[in-house]
């Protein structure tokens, strides 16, 4: 290329230059809706979380509450609104925990290499060898069903995958010349990790975060369904499916709606992640061709 300025746009952030598609707009809107509801839910819910509003159990939509009632005659709408907060907050906390552990250890393993990498990798592989649900069941079985144990357990189980991804990323970026240049300058491990490797791993990590968040919702809902997650009378979507499973045969909204909500949240998140990844790859491909 000649010394003339080429017209490639600056790429300050990983989000720069992303073009919206309809899928992304719809998925984003759904997510935004649930996030907003999680924030303001308690103020707009027509009834309390555990408040019994009707003597009719499994009332259909429009009778009793707007979206019917559950097995104890509680308002399904209100419990859904309260539930989004529990479900998303727990998923967020577990995902953050898994990333805090996974990314730190993964990058550390990639930079320090040697015995540290070997030991941590083998431990993680040992954890990964167990089916994740089984592993979680064992840990919760031993330590009991408190929210803290639940969050830590799911965070730990999810962090194994995050560790793998960030270790691979760390190895890939870690051999780039600009990282070598920083090493040759005498920079410490912390600088190399936070200033050189992390900013250049952001795009895949953000995508990974979205996927793990989805997985964590499904995982937590599954545990709640098994009765090991959130405990009554607190509202959680997975728990709601489980406690109202008896109404399924009556076609009750109390069992179907929370399942549909879980689906809408996870599918939207997945679509958004797909869009983000495709855009990232697309931009990189075009950029390479231009040079």
């Amino acid at each position: 290329m000649s010394d003339a300025t080429d017209p490639i746009a600056p790429r300050a952030s990983v989000f720069a230059g992303l073009r919206l598609t309809w899928t992304a707009i719809i998925a984003g809107s759904v997510l935004l809706f649930w996030f907003t509801l999680a924030l303001i839910g308690p103020w707009i819910a027509p009834h309390g979380e555990a408040e019994i509003i009707s003597s009719t159990t499994f009332a259909p939509i429009g009778e009793g509450g707007i979206l019917g009632t559950d097995k104890l005659g509680r308002d399904v709408l209100s419990r859904l609104i309260y539930g989004v907060r529990t479900t998303m907050l727990l998923a967020l906390v577990t995902t953050v925990i898994s990333f805090a552990c996974g990314v730190t250890l993964g990058f550390a393993a990639a930079i320090l290499k040697g015995w540290f990498d070997v030991i941590v990798s083998r431990i993680v592989e040992a954890f990964m060898a167990f089916p994740s649900t089984l592993l979680a069941l064992v840990i919760i079985g031993v330590f009991g069903t408190s929210i803290t144990v639940l969050v830590l357990t799911v965070g730990l189980v999810l962090s194994t995958g995050v560790f793998r991804v960030s270790r691979a990323l760390g190895y890939d970026v870690g051999v780039m010349d600009f990282v070598e240049a920083a090493r040759a300058r005498g920079e410490g491990t912390w600088w190399i990790l936070t200033r050189e490797i992390l900013p250049n791993s952001m795009a895949p990590l953000i995508a990974e975060f979205g996927l793990r968040f989805t997985f964590s919702i499904l995982f937590l809902s599954g545990l709640s369904f098994l009765g090991l997650g959130v405990q009554e009378p607190a509202a959680d979507w997975g728990l709601m499916v489980q406690e109202n499973v008896g109404g399924l045969f009556l076609g009750s909204s109390a069992a179907l709606l929370p399942a549909a909500c879980i689906a809408s949240l996870t599918i939207s998140m997945n679509l958004l992640v797909d869009w983000f990844q495709q855009r990232q790859q697309g931009e990189t491909v075009l950029e390479k061709i231009d040079q």
Binding site: R11, D177, E180, G186, P199, N200
Partner: peptide
């Protein structure tokens, strides 16, 4: 070993790499 060298010694000897684009952090 790089880690055992004083900063003064590192400063005196700098390196420029072959591939100009991979030697610069694209996010800085």
């Amino acid at each position: 070993e790089l880690d055992a060298r004083p900063r003064e010694a590192l400063r005196d000897c700098q390196m420029v790499f072959q591939m100009a684009d991979t030697a610069l952090n694209p996010r800085q």
